[in-house]
Computed example of a mutant assay.
Amino acid sequence: MSAPHTGQFCALLLRRQLLLAMRRPIEMGNPLLFFTMVIVLFPLGLGPAPDKLAIFAPGVLWITALLSNLLTSDAVFRSDFDDGSLEQLVLAPQPLFLSALAYILAHWLTTGLLLALVSPIFALMLNLPVSALGTLIVSLLLGTAVLSLLGGIGAALTVGLKRGGVLISLLILPLYMPVLIFGTAAVQAAVTGAPSGPYLAILGAMLSLAIALAPLAIAAGLRISIDA
C-alpha cells in the first residue's frame, strides 16, 4: 500500500486531531470556561459602571483570550509524545513542518476560532459598542492564529519535559506581547471611531510571517525534543 501524498496526509492528520479533541470535550471547553469566568468576575472587581467597563473591555477581552490560548499550548503535542506517535511522525516521509502546521490548525480551530465566535457575547456584557464587534472578531481570528503558531514553538521545545507549562510561558509570553498590543489597539480604535484597518493589517502581516516561519521552528523543536 503506497503512502498518502503530503496533502492527503496532512488532511488526515487534521481530521484525527479534531476527532481527538471532540472526544475530550472537557479539555476543549477549558479555554471557553476560563474566558467566561474572567469576563464574569471582572465587573465584580472593577464595578458595574458601564463607562468603566467599556474603557477596559478591549484589553480585558484580549488578555483573557491570550491566557486561554496559553493554557492549552502545552497539550498540542503532549499526548502524541507520550504514546510514541510523535516519534513516528518525525520519521514519516512527509515534511514535518507541514504536519506540524496541521496540528496548529487543529489547535486554533478548537480554541482561537471558538473564542472569536463567542467573544461578541462577552463584549456586550462589558458594554463594548456594537460598532466595534466586527473589529473584535477579525482581530481575534487573526491574533489567536498567531498565538497558536507561537505557542506551538514553545510546545515543541518543551514537549519532552514533565512540567513544560511554566517554561512555555517564559519562552513565549514576550513574543505574545506585540499581538496583544496591536489586537487591543484595533478594538480600541473601533471603539473611539478611529480607523482600525492599519492595526488589522499589522496583525495580518504577523500571521503571514508566522505561517511562513513558525512551522519550520516547530519542526526543528520537535526533532530536538525527540533526539534529546
Rank of each mutant, 00 (worst) to 15 (best):
P43T: 02
L44D: 12
L44R: 09
G45A: 11
L46G: 10
L46T: 15
G47R: 04
P48W: 04
P48M: 04
P48C: 02
A49K: 13
P50Q: 14
P50N: 09
P50E: 14
P50Y: 10
D51W: 06
D51F: 08
D51L: 07
D51C: 00
K52D: 00
K52M: 05
L53H: 03
L53P: 03
L53V: 03
A54Q: 03
A54D: 00
I55C: 00
F56M: 10
F56I: 07
P58H: 10
P58T: 08
P58D: 01
G59L: 06
V60E: 03
V60H: 02
L61T: 09
W62F: 14
W62A: 05
I63N: 07
I63H: 03
T64S: 15
L66M: 13
L66W: 09
L67R: 01
L67N: 09
L67D: 06
L67G: 00
S68F: 04
S68Y: 12
S68C: 14
N69H: 11
L70D: 06
T72E: 13
T72G: 08
S73N: 09
S73C: 10
D74F: 11
D74L: 06
A75Y: 09
V76F: 13
F77W: 12
F77S: 10
R78V: 06
R78N: 02
R78P: 01
S79E: 11
S79G: 00
S79W: 04
D80W: 04
F81K: 05
F81G: 05
D82E: 13
D82I: 06
D82L: 10
D82H: 03
D83C: 12
G84R: 01
S85D: 12
L86Q: 09
E87Q: 15
L89T: 14
L89M: 15
V90I: 13
V90A: 15
V90C: 09
V90P: 00
V90S: 13
V90E: 05
L91F: 12
L91I: 04
A92N: 07
A92Q: 05
P93T: 12
P93E: 10
